[in-house]
Design a binder for these strands. Structure first.
Lengths: 150, 150
DNA sequence: ATCCGATGTAACTATTATGGTTACTTTGAA
DNA sequence: TTCAAAGTAACCATAATAGTTACATCGGAT
């Protein structure tokens, strides 16, 4: 994959759970969510499992099993979601050690790591400006031909 | 690879070219640069080729061939380098289309694309604050045991 | 107490991106 | 004319992620 689509799928799942709750009530199952995302239910369960560990959703097992939001979408930002799924770093230093006998090879890694830490924080700060309620509102604002299913 | 290391290798190559120019003069070859980065010369030529297309470096062929900076490192930011190597997007929407009969599936992609465009711009704005001269200065500031080679 | 639909999770395969390698052509100043 | 290095195509290796299958576990409803 070119970029990382996990944040997209996570936002999709969370807003789907909320819309399902509004329209039909009750818990959302990984199978229904996967039907909307167009992926395998296990992919959804893995992703929601990490969000549950971070306190964003709760799961129930046994009969009437499924997923519910742990708090309103207004109180959940894309930063919360991003951090809950613990994505790989956006930038990396050399995959194999550079030549440490060269001043550049010796000193460049910590310098670049510091730069990348600043960039990652800028990413998180930007994601913090967007709540999942914003996402759901903008999604529903786009005209939809039927809106029969979800 | 977890993250993208191309920006690291690009910064390494550019600062190496400058240091080589200061110490030995003349052009830098992809083979010498690759020796410091610890990779294959072709990897370096591919990367510097894209930076040449963006006007950051110049290459010479034939005898006395090699690479030189097109402008001082003071006038080159990590944003310039990042954009010259045209990296893949940091975030992506679903790899396969979501269910378009669902309001979420129908509307979420443009919403997330807009969010990701904001994030990418935040990344570039942060990278713009760091020049390659800053990188070289910080690299050389780290104590190095011998500094015999580079 | 039993049922049964959904979670939880391991293990595997498929796909894709990237880096690394080989081999070869082209260049152009000495 | 030489020759060291750029330029580049084509291929292989590695790693990350998504997708899939299979199955144990759970726990409210009946």
């Amino acid at each position: 994959m070119a970029g990382n689509s996990q944040l997209t799928v996570a936002a999709h799942a969370l807003t789907w759970i909320e819309l399902h709750h509004r329209r039909e009530g009750g818990v959302a199952t990984s199978e229904r969510i996967a039907g909307s995302v167009n992926t395998n239910p296990v992919v959804i369960r893995r992703l929601l499992g990490r969000m549950r560990d971070a306190g964003l959703v709760r799961s129930r097992r046994g009969a009437e099993a499924g997923w519910v939001l742990a708090r309103p979408l207004e109180d959940m930002t894309l930063r919360d979601v991003y951090e809950s799924i613990e994505p790989a770093p956006l930038f990396a230093v050399h995959r194999s050690d550079p030549n440490l006998d060269c001043p550049i090879g010796f000193g460049i890694r910590p310098v670049m790591r510091l730069a990348y830490a600043r960039v990652e924080e800028a990413v998180r700060a930007e994601l913090e400006n967007i709540t999942l309620a914003d996402v759901l509102r903008d999604v529903l604002a786009s005209s939809h031909p039927t809106e029969l299913e979800h």
